[in-house]
Design a protein around this nucleic acid. Structure first.
Lengths: 159, 159
DNA sequence: TATTGTTATACTCTATAACTATA
DNA sequence: TATAGTTATAGAGTATAACAATA
């Protein structure tokens, strides 16, 4: 077992530490523009998360948003209220269950959502563009197999 | 230019989108344990950032911490006060400039810092361990050149 | 009775302003 | 005068509790 175990462990640990370093570099280096835009739009992080969820699901109840982003119902109620006031989402009674509200994203909300998404990708793109050709090629080759995994590939921004 | 530009653009865009998806997957999937531990330790995010800085620099003034983590001086003053009360840092007058305080991490603070660091890496390790052999090898190969960059390699957790 | 959502209230964390001590 | 740090105060955002409407 020794002969086969060692290399596996080595590549696991090497990839783990390298990935941790890369993620940290990307987080510290590329997040600025995103948060500055959130501030400019006067959106709280909870509103950003809510908008993000609605950008992907078209429709959700406050309860669903609350469960999905792990925030209390009152907090979501107020966050969404702010989004309604900014014209980024609409809130209407659910005809099938009049206790619930159907929250939907508006065209303006969708533009905001996509702008924020692009801004987050932009930081990563700038990093990749700054790499040497061989680094970029190696990285692309290393990531390609992972994109085959549905749980990761599905997260890729649509082009 | 067309013939040489196109492949470069392709690998740039491919790597960008793949990296964005991977980072997102790692953020959403592996952050839970870290934040649960922060809550268990009753540490605010600002206290975590301050402790992190002190874990890497041994000593810093409140002003330095404030500048480095981008938080107001009063906020840092109170965050550090909490760390002092928990015995994770010491705060003493700077003999060279008696207006300033020298904040240093204690042994307890260092254990906490390293525990939090390991917890953050643990999520990434679990992800890497869950990969297929060929995925892991490809990922390790793809990341290795990046670790040669000082701005990234320096961020790798020490082993 | 249980569930969805809103409103009331208390708490945490933050920034700005005012202040103290030192340079 | 300027700078490091603390204290006072106000504002944003959160959770729990109490409530109204509907299931």
């Amino acid at each position: 077992m020794q002969a086969t175990d060692a290399p596996t462990h080595t590549s696991t640990e090497g990839a783990t530490l390298a990935l941790a370093a890369l993620v940290r570099h990307l987080m510290t280096g590329t997040g600025g523009g995103f948060f500055r835009e959130l501030e400019r739009l006067d959106l709280s992080l909870s509103q950003c998360k809510s908008l993000h969820l609605l950008g992907e699901r078209e429709v959700a109840s406050l309860k669903t948003i609350s469960d999905e982003i792990g925030l209390s119902l009152p907090a979501v109620s107020r966050a969404v209220e702010g989004l309604v006031q900014r014209g980024m989402v609409k809130r209407a009674e659910d005809p099938d269950d009049r206790r619930a509200k159907r929250v939907t994203i508006t065209a303006k909300g969708r533009r905001t959502f996509e702008g924020l998404l692009e801004l987050r990708v932009a930081g990563i793109r700038a990093f990749v563009e700054g790499l040497e050709e061989h680094e970029r090629e190696a990285l692309a080759d290393g990531l390609r197999p992972l994109m085959e995994r549905p749980e990761i590939g599905a997260l890729a921004p649509r082009r």
